[in-house]
Design a protein around this nucleic acid. Structure first.
Lengths: 226, 226
DNA sequence: GCCTTAAATTGAACATGTTCAGAAATGCGA
DNA sequence: TCGCATTTCTGAACATGTTCAATTTAAGGC
């Protein structure tokens, strides 16, 4: 049994696994998630139908495999991109632009992921237990963006702000999946309009006057999130 | 052919249709959306499997039928509930509480609706064309809440604010579907924490100082929404 | 009452995600 | 190299959403 990585796979198995992901990604990209059948994928990867289920629990998990790939890519490529400026707005934008760039070719594919996300009972829900490490890595990206930036973050915000920004990013990505405007121009507009506002809000939140309001908001956020 | 209402159905057909919805709702409630098969539903309604597809295009459309029922119920019950106060916060709360009350028994069922919602290509997406009239009715509820309230809304906000509040409501409902805390207590906390804030924001937005910021936000919102 | 047309209904067939019992391949100690 | 355990893979079977050709039922005019 392979699958979670509980047992380390042989080189050959690893190669088969990759072949299945590659086949799936190619077909997803060319004909969309729903239009691609598991039989198609297996045929494209030159394995039997059931083989895919030896490596992946479901069709959606193949999308998740793609997502994991992008996270790994981000791990090496994001830090240098971030180092280019210490302006918080630019740093946040760098993260989100990078992600959207990674997804660009596979926009329709993310519908498969979104469907997972919407189902709180699904093991692969982005808010669930099984995806914690991926999620934590995503949140850490925003922590890093804040850390090296030119914006001071009030102490009591420091613990929650990265997660809030990550949540914002998830919202943007969701919007982007929906966005049928040419080249997803509306998403760019959304980013232009809101990112700058967020940075300004973070800046304002440091003002002493804002203490009570900030605490009130934080309290709500903490009470609401798990 | 029935289905959209293109042809008016006979009384008997209408009765069959209702029987199918009732059967579906009963089974959805008792055993969940995914665990209920179309064969189960047909059997419970004493019709053949295919009959359900004479009236509904898909399993999800049965959930939509439930949703339409709640909208119709709201049409008669919401106005009186709203008339009880002209405090905007209370009026908004009345709408949302009423909806959550309607859904309470069928929380798991809404996952089926959420899956539709997340797929921008689905004909029944809450942002799509086919659901316009339902959506407009929902937005109108918030328009009414604003109209008879004690809060003055700046002119340039009046066109968009109801839709924004409706969007907020959708977000709350989505959160509520996810909310696994006992009796969905976290959703109540979220409402307590954010509704009051929203009302205060609307109030603040009238201040002359807020003009530029308000215009900037509005511009973004208008550029971003369809 | 009979005929014609449309509406309503049937149930088998189909498509596709998923499972599973077993076959083949592989690795490994003796 | 042989035997055995484990991993990898197979393809048929299954479950379930959906479609569809065919049948039954109902409505309306004559």
């Amino acid at each position: 049994m392979v699958r979670g990585g509980e047992k380390q796979a042989t080189a050959k198995a690893e190669e088969t696994r990759e072949r299945i992901v590659d086949a799936a990604l190619k077909l997803f990209r060319d004909q969309g998630f729903d239009q691609t059948t598991m039989r198609d994928i297996a045929a494209e990867a030159d394995v039997a139908t059931g083989a895919a289920y030896y490596y992946f629990r479901s069709k959606e998990e193949l999308v998740m495999a793609f997502y994991v790939r992008t996270v790994e890519e981000a791990r090496t490529l994001l830090p240098p991109a971030m180092a280019r400026s210490n302006d918080l707005g630019k740093r946040l934008r760098a993260i989100i632009d990078f992600k959207l760039g990674q997804f660009a070719e596979h926009r329709r594919l993310l519908i498969g992921l979104a469907r997972i996300g919407i189902d709180p009972d699904h093991p692969l829900s982005p808010f669930g237990n099984e995806t914690r490490s991926i999620r934590d890595e995503g949140i850490a990206e925003f922590e890093a963006a804040l850390h090296g930036s030119n914006v001071r973050v009030p102490k009591d915000l420091q613990a929650d702000l990265p997660r809030l920004l990550w949540l914002y990013q998830m919202g943007v990505i969701l919007f982007w999946i929906f966005d049928s405007s040419p080249k997803q121009a509306r998403t760019r507009t959304l980013l232009d309009g809101t990112l700058d506002l967020i940075v300004r809000l973070i800046r304002l939140s440091s003002l002493p006057l804002m203490g009570p309001l900030r605490r009130r908001l934080l309290q709500t956020i903490q009470a609401v999130t798990i």
